[in-house]
């Protein structure tokens, strides 16, 4: 079941990324590296180590080698596991988040970027070491689709501490989660470039429950009987939008790019819009 879904997502991702040409557009930076590009005249300030002695000896002035800079990006995808991702009407958010992860991973790998995939809840669940091999995608996707999220919740403080202590290089960090907890990611956002991809379901934002219903909190596993009417649902929507406003404000003040992706959205389109914004 998971395998089928994994193949499905992989195919979708590959097709979309190929045709959509996401990534692959980075200009090559000139600089230090191993990839030889051309020879040019020496100007004051050029690195003397790069002087091409053979060309210089030919007598046409001092020449230096120019290389393509090894400008590999350090991409970190953080899949934030909380009990609440095990919910969805068309499909569960866990699946949606896996697909989002697939698109970003594949684009990064295709662009020969260094990809680190982290699964995090209260503490580190699983880390896939930095790699450039496409084969990692099957592992990470498989893990994302198969994980059990019930009873877990994200601790953003722990997450920031972990990122700061283990990732030294400036990185591109993609956070994938539903962001229902109180959040503070200012500790990582000033150093790295952070994107927050908010996975949501239409129904949870606008539930149409009626009357008595028993609901279980997937993080604390406490069960509550509640009776819902129009006014309390209205109040609920108000509380939720207040929470989201607070969330957006936090993202804006910390220069985090963010965007919501719903379970019934065209994921590829949404991601490219969020990243290009």
């Amino acid at each position: 079941m998971i395998k089928n879904r994994l193949k499905e997502i992989l195919l979708k991702v590959k097709k979309k990324v190929f045709t959509g040409n996401l990534g692959n557009t980075l200009s090559t930076f000139k600089g230090t590296g191993l990839d030889f590009s051309e020879i040019k005249d020496y100007v004051i300030g050029d690195d003397v180590r790069a002087i091409n002695w053979k060309s210089t000896a030919k007598g046409l002035g001092v020449k230096v080698n120019i290389f393509n800079e090894e400008r590999e990006l350090n991409v970190i995808i953080a899949y934030l596991i909380s009990g609440s991702i095990n919910f969805g009407t068309k499909r569960v958010k866990q699946d949606l988040m896996a697909e989002i992860m697939g698109y970003i991973s594949y684009s990064a790998l295709k662009n020969s970027d260094n990809l680190t995939t982290i699964f995090f809840d209260g503490n580190l669940e699983k880390i896939f070491k930095p790699t450039r091999k496409l084969g990692i995608l099957e592992d990470t996707l498989g893990y994302a689709l198969g994980l059990d999220s019930i009873g877990k919740s994200v601790d953003y403080d722990q997450f920031c501490t972990f990122i700061n202590s283990s990732i030294k290089k400036k990185s591109l960090i993609f956070l994938i989660g539903d962001f229902y907890n109180d959040i503070n990611i200012s500790k990582i956002s000033h150093k790295n470039e952070v994107y927050a991809l908010i996975a949501r379901d239409r129904f949870e934002e606008n539930p149409s429950f009626k009357g008595d219903i028993s609901l279980v909190d997937p993080t604390s596993l406490s069960e509550d009987n509640m009776s819902l009417d129009k006014s309390s649902l209205k109040e609920y929507r108000k509380l939720l939008s207040e929470h989201d406003d607070k969330l957006y404000k936090h993202f804006l003040t910390n220069r985090v790019k963010y965007g919501k992706i719903y379970t019934n959205d065209d994921v590829y389109l949404r991601i490219s819009r969020i990243l290009k914004a």
């Binding site: 095990n86 949870e204 028993s214 819902l228 009417d229 609920y236 939720l240």
Partner: peptide, 24 residues
């Protein structure tokens, strides 16, 4: 003796609980 209703996971229980506090 709470009534046994069909239970359902719901992600945003904290908000829902707050919203239904008064009517409950």
């Amino acid at each position: 003796c709470k009534p046994k209703l069909d239970a359902l996971f719901f992600p945003t229980m904290t908000f829902l609980k707050k919203a239904t506090k008064k009517s409950m």
